[in-house]
Design a protein around this nucleic acid. Structure first.
Lengths: 301, 301
DNA sequence: TGACTCAGTGTAGGGAAGCTAAAGGGTTGC
DNA sequence: GCAACCCTTTAGCTTCCCTACACTGAGTCA
């Protein structure tokens, strides 16, 4: 006794003849007849009886046909379940971001998407080496990752949308001699001690570009990933550092100066597996991320 | 998306691995994997994801698995529907009887089976030629039919239970000369005019047996099927008649005398299609018919 | 680090299930 | 009484699902 047989029985109850059922289900009357026989085989009482040259339901058959409606209803509900899940606007959306993106995007996003009726955000910080960003899309619906402009793009397995092309400036203490220049070139900064990220993390390529453009090796004095820590170290005179122009809260004792002559710009991308944005809630968050990026870009000072 | 695939998805949610599902459903892991792939094909979002070397449900998969429970519940209910229909003690039971059986059985049956909680009787009278009793089982759950003892039995298509073996007596007016005899033989009645049933109806064979035993043809004066009418005709001097001893209400001006020398006895049988007594309500009525037959037999006067 | 085990997936092939086509039997209506 | 209609039966074909087996990737132990 399966769904199809129940369906046939129900249709027989409503249409009143094997031929009509066959037409409705787009098969031959023979197929209907055979399925009815199979269904009957498992039953202790007749489900159908002849009425003239027609075949109609017995009381037992009618009882079973009524139960068949429940089965079809449940199946229909099941079919809609995934669609509803996909379309539900208030589902949970997980979003990971590296530290500086998190500190810039998270507060704006939380304010833009207060929970009721909309996506429920599940935020997380994940600061990992460049190569480890794509695998994060297994755990999170959306992953904010960064890479240098003109660096090799992300692998095919993930989809990437660029949210922000953010300039990288040179950070220095407010009382540093270079502060007087409105714009720096590699030659200006090549002799200074530098504070850089650990190997394998983005931004290292730009440091190397500066060295190349200046024609000399740089003195890499310290290795610090976290920009808040970097800022304190720079302010204390530990050296110069590349810092993103928009996504790091300005330190009171620090000055940022733009750098010319090298490509000093990073992309902040949203990475995700293509199937994730089948969910409406995820699409909503992605749209909002783009809007938030606009806000961040325009709050340039 | 069918029931089996939903079942597999649900089991995967509960058991947590393809192998476990395969064991539970008595198939190979390959079969499970293939079915999951087919189910997935129709869905816009992943239903499953790898967790280490195991396969588990995604949120969407879990939502669908929950819906699958409803489907299984409905199917289970459907499976029980027929069984419940069969076991329900208060279903409608249709019963047909030829006239004299109806007048004897119906009132006792109606008193023995008052509706609430028990079978709901749907009674009907059907007085038909011998050969037409079996087809009545198409329309009625139970059919009371009669045939002469030693007459050919009912066809294989119906099941028959004998309720009563009822003697056929000779009915005569109370002032008839033969009344003085306590017991008659064929020779006693062969010269009298007879009132018989129409050709094709039971009892004719007994009339013929009397003629054979007496060695002469009988004078068949009248042809009347209905015993109440027969009784009036006999009382008015229209002739002798065979009348059932128990199932006809005694006429005040009539006397019944038993007949020896010929098999003058009819069977009152309950006929039915075997599948009909799958229903509890029908079985209840059949049991009650036997009990009522006992009462009728014992109320011999 | 490498060998081993375990879980899931892909592929080829066999068997079952369901369908169509065609023929047959019963019922109805002109 | 014949034609039309409806359902059923049978044979044969297609489709689907399962098994067997090989393979890949993940975890585990020495």
């Amino acid at each position: 006794m399966d769904e199809r047989q129940l369906r046939i029985l129900r249709e027989l109850g409503e249409l009143g003849s094997v031929t009509a059922v066959a037409e409705a289900l787009l098969v031959t009357p023979s197929a209907i007849s055979q399925q009815l026989r199979l269904l009957q085989r498992a039953m202790p009482v007749p489900l159908t009886e002849r009425q003239g040259r027609r075949l109609v339901l017995t009381d037992a058959g009618q009882a079973l046909a009524d139960a068949a409606i429940e089965v079809e209803t449940a199946l229909e509900r099941a079919r809609h379940t995934v669609a509803e899940f996909v379309d539900q606007p208030d589902g949970e959306v997980s979003l990971a971001a590296f530290h500086s993106a998190g500190s810039a995007f998270f507060p704006l996003l939380l304010r833009a998407l207060p929970a009721p009726g909309g996506p429920q955000l599940a935020l997380a910080d994940e600061d990992v080496p460049q190569a480890d960003f794509p695998p994060l899309t297994r755990q999170y619906d959306l992953v904010l990752a960064h890479r240098l402009e003109h660096a090799p793009s992300w692998p095919r397995t993930v989809t990437a949308t660029t949210l922000l092309r953010e300039p990288l400036d040179v950070a220095m203490p407010a009382d540093h001699p270079l502060v007087v220049k409105r714009r720096l070139v590699p030659r200006d900064v090549a002799d200074q001690p530098w504070i850089t990220v650990h190997d394998g993390f983005p931004l290292m390529a730009t440091i190397e570009a500066i060295a190349t453009a200046a024609g000399q090796r740089l003195h890499l004095a310290h290795r610090i990933n976290e920009f808040a820590v970097v800022a304190e170290a720079v302010a204390a005179g530990g050296g110069l550092a590349l810092m993103p122009r928009w996504t790091t809260r300005p330190h009171p004792d620090l000055v940022l100066r733009p750098l010319s002559g090298v490509r000093a710009r990073r992309h902040i991308d949203a990475l995700y597996r293509p199937e994730r944005i089948a969910r409406k809630a995820v699409r909503t968050v992605l749209t909002e991320l783009n809007r938030v990026a606009d806000v961040i870009r325009r709050q340039d000072r």
